[in-house]
Every structure is written in structure tokens, then in C-alpha cells.
């Protein structure tokens, strides 16, 4: 984005008359707005897709009434949610009850700034992009804990605590799997990592150092699925035990922000997975539409495929128990990710 600003400053248009700081600020605001708009659109489409996918898997029709094949259903639901009464329980901590959903949405939003959308296009091209994304998403843990605590409700509190314990545990295998990739590319910059796998499907990092990177990808996929609190890891909002978990006491607009951030997080982990293991913005076919803005298409497509697998798993698998959840994280995924690091390290030395 800095290159774009520089180009505008040295161009003949009226942008050149503005001060560089003002122009940077305008671009920052526009970038942030764009991210929020894309995330809102993502939630609209993803909720519809989820309902249709589940219907298809259960041999139902799903939403069919609003618009052709029910395509406007989520739009109608959004309007309903926005005009719904905002209920705050009398005994809740009002300030924290208000703060928690916004904190939950800020975390994935901030992370989207660092993703590589196309060749040489990132909102913020920093050197430590991967590390920044893992660091900033830890904010959502705090948000869920605060939401559970502020609601002053047993189920909400237990759900919040479960969510926090789960996310903190699964951050470790996910981080180690990311480390495997960072180690072989030698950079924490998302664009460098995408560049290292440019030139067709056989250059993708998932195939390199077979089978270590493939295992690292599976570890990363499962761990990030758990971090999104999705089935089979949806214990924090297990409806048969905890009503709705940490958002039991939320309604209307604030509840929809929680939903928005859940779908934003799904998109985020899908895109990070695509950037680290599946070639990022580069085309799967060598030389086919592998230039400039086409990168957005490929990157988005890879993200969508990963999200569809999230949905597929959700409507296929039953939920894990708490002890199975912790067992999977600490005794299965973590050792495997360590094995990947050691394996790739030895291979690189050999």
C-alpha cells in the first residue's frame, strides 16, 4: 500500500497536493473500512452457505422462502437482528458486557491487515506478519472470558472458561506448525512465504519435505478449527450442556457481532492456512492467470474451499468430550508438530 501512496503523491492528480500524512491516514481508514465490509459480506454469505450445506448433507432444502432459493434469507435475518431489543441482564456487569463483543471482533479484523491478498498487495507489509497475526488473535481469548464473566450467568462463565482454555491450548500446536513453515522459508513475512511457493500446485509448501509439511498442515488445520470453536470442537457453546456458552446472555446487535467475529475468524484461519501451505495468491496451474489482481481470486478461492471443509466437518462429526479435547491438543497434535519441526530441521541440514 505504501507504494500506491508514493505513486499517488508523485502523480499529476490532485492527490499529489495532499500531505503524505493525510493521504496515509485516508488510506488507513479506507483499508480498515474495506476489511470490515468484506467481513460483513463474508458472514452474510457464509451463514447462508452453512445452512445450505447442512441442508444438503441432511437431505433437506434449507432456506427457500426469501428470494430465489432463499438467497436473501441471511439479509432478512440481519435486519431482524439489528432491530431486536438489546437485553442486558440486570445483574450483569454492564460496561464489560458492552465491551466484550467489540473486543472479540477487533482481533480478527486487525489480523486481516497483514494477509497477502495478491502479488505485492498487503494492507500492511510488515516483516513479522505471521507472528503479528498469531499475537493479535490472542485478544479474542480475553474477549470471550470477559463476555462469560460479565454476563453473570453460570453457563456463560463456564462457556467462556472452556473457550479460553481451548484456544490457549490449541494455540501451541498451531504456532509450532506455523514455525515449521517459517523455518524453511526463513521469513515471517506473508508475502515472502507466498513468493516461496509461486509457480503452480507442485511448488506449494504442503508437498515439500514430504510428509512433514503435510502433517504440519493437518496439525495447523485441526488446531485452528479448534481455535474457531467449531464442531467437533464446539464445547464452549455446547447447546445440550451450556445453553449457548459465552453468548447465552447476548441478544440483537451484540450477539450478531459475536457471530460476525466467529465467521471472520473462520475466514482468517482459512486464509492463513492458504497463505502458509497452499501457495497463497499464486495460481495452482503454472502460468495460468498468475498475475497481479488474479491473486485475490486464487487466494479467496483457497480460503473458500477450506471454509467449506470446516462446514463439511461440522455437519459430519459429533462433538468431543473435554478430556478428549485436551488429550488431542497436548498428547497428539503437540508431539506431532514437534516431530515436524525436528524432521524438517534435520532434512534442511542434510
Amino acid at each position: 500500500m505504501r507504494e500506491l501512496i508514493d505513486a499517488l503523491l508523485h502523480s499529476e492528480t490532485f492527490f499529489a497536493k495532499l500531505s503524505p500524512t493525510l493521504l496515509t491516514l485516508i488510506f488507513m481508514a479506507l483499508g480498515a473500512l474495506l476489511i470490515v465490509l468484506v467481513l460483513a459480506l463474508n458472514a452474510l454469505i457464509a451463514v447462508y452457505a452453512e445452512r445450505k450445506v447442512s441442508a444438503w448433507m441432511q437431505e433437506r432444502l434449507g432456506p427457500m422462502e426469501v428470494g430465489p432459493r432463499g438467497i436473501l434469507q441471511t439479509l432478512a435475518d440481519t435486519v431482524k437482528l439489528l432491530v431486536k431489543e438489546d437485553i442486558i441482564p440486570a445483574a450483569a456487569d454492564k460496561r464489560l458486557h458492552w465491551l466484550a463483543p467489540f473486543l472479540a471482533f477487533v482481533a480478527p479484523c486487525a489480523a486481516f491487515a497483514a494477509l497477502p491478498y495478491a502479488r505485492n498487495f498487503v494492507f500492511a507489509n510488515f516483516d513479522i506478519g505471521v507472528f503479528y497475526v498469531t499475537a493479535i488473535t490472542s485478544l479474542s481469548v480475553i474477549a470471550l472470558l470477559l463476555a462469560g464473566w460479565a454476563s453473570n450467568n453460570k453457563w456463560a462463565l463456564l462457556g467462556g472458561m472452556r473457550a479460553a482454555a481451548q484456544i490457549v491450548s490449541y494455540e501451541i500446536p498451531a504456532g509450532l506448525a506455523i514455525l515449521t513453515i517459517v523455518m524453511q522459508v526463513g521469513s515471517l513475512n506473508f508475502n515472502d512465504i507466498s513468493l516461496a511457493q509461486d509457480g503452480g500446485i507442485h511448488h506449494w509448501l504442503i508437498w515439500r519435505y514430504f510428509p512433514f509439511n503435510l502433517i504440519a498442515f493437518l496439525v495447523f488445520y485441526l488446531a485452528t478449527l479448534a481455535e474457531c470453536n467449531r464442531t467437533p470442537f464446539d464445547l464452549p457453546e455446547a447447546e445440550s450442556e451450556l445453553v449457548a456458552g459465552f453468548h447465552t446472555e447476548y441478544s440483537g446487535f451484540k450477539w450478531s457481532i459475536f457471530m460476525l467475529s466467529e465467521y471472520a475468524e473462520m475466514l482468517l484461519v482459512a486464509l492463513v492456512g492458504a497463505a502458509l501451505f497452499l501457495g497463497g495468491w499464486s495460481s495452482p496451474i503454472p502460468g495460468f492467470l498468475n498475475t497481479g489482481a488474479w491473486g485475490v481470486l486464487w487466494f479467496g478461492l483457497k480460503g473458500v474451499v477450506l471454509i467449506l471443509t470446516h462446514m463439511w466437518l461440522r455437519w459430519t462429526l459429533p462433538r468431543l468430550r473435554v478430556d478428549q479435547l485436551m488429550h488431542l491438543s497436548w498428547k497428539v497434535l503437540t508431539p506431532f508438530s514437534f516431530a515436524c519441526i525436528v524432521g524438517v530441521g534435520l532434512w534442511m541440514l542434510a
Binding site: 490472542s138 472470558l145 472458561m161
Partner: peptide
């Protein structure tokens, strides 16, 4: 010091603060 800033977030916000909140809530 970009690396230090991200480490600050990861360790203090993602680790220590979560632990602290956990302790208080439990």
C-alpha cells in the same frame, strides 16, 4: 521494535493476562 511489540502482545495479553483472568474467575 516490531518483534518486541508482537511478543508483548503474545506473552502479556495472550498468556499472563489470560492466566490472571482465569485465576480471578475460578
Amino acid at each position: 521494535a516490531d518483534f518486541l511489540a508482537a511478543t508483548q502482545l503474545l506473552i502479556y495479553v495472550g498468556g499472563i493476562l489470560v492466566l490472571l483472568l482465569f485465576g480471578v474467575m475460578l
